[in-house]
Design a protein around this nucleic acid. Structure first.
Lengths: 211, 211
DNA sequence: CCTTGTCTTAACCAAATAGTTAAACTGAAT
DNA sequence: ATTCAGTTTAACTATTTGGTTAAGACAAGG
């Protein structure tokens, strides 16, 4: 009776029921919000009975809360790691853009979800997240100021530079449906356009901060 | 009996019931979205009986549709006018940035509303809500290509330039709560930061497209 | 004053949806 | 095989919520 643990049907879906529920809930909550996602829908996507949602996660609110926490706590450390590293600024910016665009293109709805959630409960956030996970942009700020002092880049407030970079990375993906409307692009053209963003953003940013 | 028209209780709230309903609905829909806003809540905010909502606007969907149309149609024509004008490119970009940031800073929730709802209910938006006369960016595109040909700006796809400009204008306001979290700014500092955006974006963009 | 059309309300209805329960299933330990 | 704990389901209940209805208020005109 050593360690042959609860194998309980781990074969069919390869994942535990609890996890399948959580994944389904995450997808739907992130895409449709608390009110837009329905419990039955979540159950269907997880391929289980609706009662199991309540068996594992007492209520819709609780389930949503756990999802929100997980999403936030997964998103921030990744950014933090990039922003706080000590590698040379130019290289760091290039890596950041590549990585960030890659990340968002695979998780289109996450930024909007976090922003919406942050707007709903501005204070709850600081209880939700591990304090250590909060990105500390000081390293980045110092690097920018050093490069400015050396004359390698033009004077610019580091805060503006950081936000500008993030804006250029995030916005086109978040506003994806608008591309179709405003630029009149087909689905294929939209994908082509978004694929070009990594290089485009890097060119744009580096040109914008040249001395 | 000259011109003493239907005064019908225009005194108490100074506004017609129909208008009060519409205003309440706009506030709540913009803030909470279609699913998040409840009819009873709208009625309460308007200070009237719930049945009146259906008396004036048949259903929730219809009411939402009218609100969404109004919100969008207040924003787009102005943009359109700017984008389609024939004034010199540099001047046009500067005016666009000034105007756009001004507009957004006074209606912070509108872009978020449009983007969120567009992502949640793309069909409804494209079929019923969006106006037929969207901004036509062709003039802008042509101007950019001309300036590139003349060697006044560096080569860049006009679509990317347009999206970059919009991204730099919109994103910081949409992501306002993130500023506090990521940059660690106080409310006063956030306002200061956002006030600097007009000049910052113009500098950044013009520098980025220099030959 | 009485009628008429517009506006407004309280009470009600029906559908959707969150949540509960009791029973059945399952696999493992006794 | 029996028990037992954890898991799962179908059927059910309770609540929320969009929508309706019938009756009343109310001004304006006859």
């Amino acid at each position: 009776m050593d360690n042959l643990p609860n194998i309980n049907q781990e074969l069919p879906g390869a994942e535990s029921t609890e996890q399948r529920i959580f994944d389904a809930a995450r997808e739907l909550f992130v895409q449709k919000g608390l009110d837009g996602a329905k419990m039955q829908e979540i159950a269907d996507r997880a391929g289980i009975n609706k009662a199991l949602l309540h068996y594992y996660y007492r209520s819709k609110e609780k389930l949503y809360e756990m999802v929100a926490k997980a999403v936030i706590n997964r998103a921030f450390p990744v950014i933090r790691q990039l922003v706080e590293s000590e590698e040379p600024l130019e290289q760091k910016i290039a890596r950041f853009i590549d990585f960030y665009i890659e990340l968002i293109s695979k998780n289109t709805f996450i930024p909007l979800f976090i922003i919406t959630e942050l707007n709903k409960h501005p204070d709850r956030f600081f209880e939700t997240i591990f304090p250590t996970d909060l990105p500390k942009p000081e390293v980045f700020f110092r690097q920018v100021e050093e490069e400015i002092a050396r004359g390698n880049i033009r004077p610019i407030k580091p805060q503006h530079l950081l936000i500008n970079i993030v804006a250029l990375c995030v916005f086109p993906f978040v506003a994806k449906p608008m591309l179709r409307v405003v630029l009149g692009l087909s689905q294929a053209e939209i994908n082509q356009f978004l694929a070009e963003r990594k290089e485009e953003v890097k060119r744009f940013v580096f040109q914008a901060i040249k001395p």
